[in-house]
């Protein structure tokens, strides 16, 4: 019996809400899946779609993006801009064949430590079920291989 697949997940979060929410989850001693690597950014508006592509390029099985609820942005409307961008980017990934299940979005406030822990757990479980992103990792391996002459 092979070991259970442990997905690697990258989370891009805004520092004012979701990062604080993650902190709350930690200080509340909530246990959640250790598969997530959190990258803290000033605002969801700073999360360029390039980050998502970069995470996939480096072999992530899934990507999470999370920030302040609408209306709560520290910079007043960074998350509104981000929301439009994601809407379009999501459709693009879907059309290209990158399953939308691998890139998840959420609003998690600084008070929602429990939501953060649950979100991480449910996404990790979902991506574990999907398995490694083989189609993409094949491309990564090809790119690493020396050029054939």
């Amino acid at each position: 019996m092979s070991e259970t697949f442990e997905p690697e997940i990258i989370a891009f979060v805004c520092t004012y809400c979701t990062y604080a929410g993650a902190d709350l989850a930690g200080t509340s001693r909530l246990k959640y899946a250790p598969n997530v690597r959190i990258i803290r950014l000033p605002c969801t508006g700073r999360i360029s779609p390039m980050f998502i592509l970069k995470a996939l390029q480096k072999g992530a099985d899934g990507v999470l993006i999370s920030g302040c609820h609408p209306g709560d942005c520290h910079f007043t409307h960074g998350n509104y801009h981000a929301r439009r961008r994601w809407m379009v980017f999501r459709a693009l990934l879907d059309f290209i064949g990158i399953p939308p299940e691998r890139v998840k979005y959420s609003w998690i406030s600084a008070a929602e430590g429990v939501k953060f822990a649950e979100f991480i757990n449910s996404v990790t479980e979902d991506i574990r079920k999907l398995g490694p992103f083989e189609q993409y990792t094949q491309l990564i391996d090809q790119a690493k291989a020396p050029a054939s002459l």
């Binding site: 929301r83 439009r84 994601w86 809407m87």
Partner: peptide
């Protein structure tokens, strides 16, 4: 430009 503007009630059905 569509990605340089927003509406407060833009669709967000995909956001958990």
């Amino acid at each position: 430009p569509v990605l340089a503007s927003f509406k407060k009630d833009d669709s967000e059905t995909f956001i958990l």
